[in-house]
């Protein structure tokens, strides 16, 4: 593999080709996947989860010894039945679970080789590097403009010109610019459901985070809006590392490069998406993706 020397886009293509070539191989343990692609390790925006367990109220363990690595500038999809812990893991990446009383964890999560639970790390600075899009679109009751620049405003940015540029760039990236450029100062609550979710994406990417976490971003949207957002995710991975939680397996196959299957709080299998769906190594995965349960 010589992809280390290629540009991100070229590398992306390379990955797809290599995954297609790898389709024949089966029975690869999860850990081995990472080991076989050393070119991805050590990249700057790389999420590494090592032996991570997570409990809600002390006795309720919802994640069991997860170990995984998420490559830079790729779309990684978390799939699995409801309550399998995929959203919990996603929300651990930017420590949103800290807001819940009585949670505890073991093991480590590294973002860009930095332990996110490090005492010296400000959780705010971590969240500034990680954008998040939620299942239910949650625009603030402010104008479209103010929604997009919110993360910059709270960071103290006052330069008007820069804010204007950020609004235009972010809305263009979220494919919302054409629809909203004449009504930037109208309330965001006047937008349609799909537009609201794209606005939330624009808001999440406004201060150019390294990672974009998406928690079932299309679950409340109609097929047309979903298609738009999926198209958008494919665009976004050119600049961001995207982790997406989805219930929709077609969606996972459409947008993701890598996929991880969770069941009962355990990571069952993680592989390139085409590989995982066409030739899963684990029985549970096969049962799930073929619709035999769940």
């Amino acid at each position: 593999m010589n992809s280390a020397s290629l540009s991100p886009i070229a590398m992306h293509k390379e990955n797809i080709q290599s995954s297609v070539q790898k389709t024949g191989q089966t029975d690869r343990p999860v850990e081995v996947v990472a080991a076989e692609e050393p070119s991805l390790a050590g990249r700057p925006d790389y999420i590494k989860v090592s032996d991570f367990s997570f409990n809600y109220v002390p006795a309720v363990r919802v994640l069991h010894n997860i170990t995984m690595e998420i490559p830079e500038k790729q779309v990684t999809a978390f799939i699995g039945p409801s309550g399998c812990g995929k959203t919990t893991l996603l929300r651990n990446f930017n420590r949103m679970n800290d807001l819940i009383d009585g949670v505890s964890h073991e093991g480590h999560i590294y973002v860009n080789d930095q332990d996110i639970h490090d005492r010296n790390l400000e959780v705010i600075s971590l969240r500034k590097r990680i954008g998040m899009v939620f299942q239910k679109s949650n625009p603030f009751p402010k104008t479209i403009y103010e929604n997009v620049v919110y993360s910059l405003r709270v960071a103290g940015q006052k330069n008007k010109q820069l804010l204007n540029e950020v609004v235009e760039r972010s809305l263009k990236s979220a494919a919302l610019w054409e629809e909203t450029k004449d009504r930037l100062h109208d309330s965001a609550l006047g937008l349609s459901g799909g537009q609201m979710q794209r606005l939330c994406i624009a808001r999440a990417i406004a201060n150019r985070p390294e990672i974009l976490l998406m928690d079932e971003p299309c679950s409340a949207l109609d097929p047309i809006a979903t298609a738009k957002i999926e198209e958008l995710i494919t665009e976004l991975k050119q600049s961001f590392t995207v982790v997406i939680v989805t219930h929709n397996m077609q969606q996972a196959t459409r947008v993701s490069d890598r996929a991880a299957y969770f069941f009962m709080g355990k990571l069952i299998e993680m592989d390139d998406t085409t590989q995982l769906f066409s030739n899963p190594s684990q029985k549970e995965t096969e049962d799930y993706i073929s619709g035999r349960f769940g």
């Binding site: 705010i124 954008g131 998040m132 939620f134 949650n138 709270v154 960071a155 808001r203 201060n207």
Partner: peptide, 13 residues
């Protein structure tokens, strides 16, 4: 809660 989480996730204190 969604509104608060969105704000916190955007890096607000």
């Amino acid at each position: 809660r969604g509104m608060r989480e969105a704000s916190l996730a955007a890096g607000a204190s």
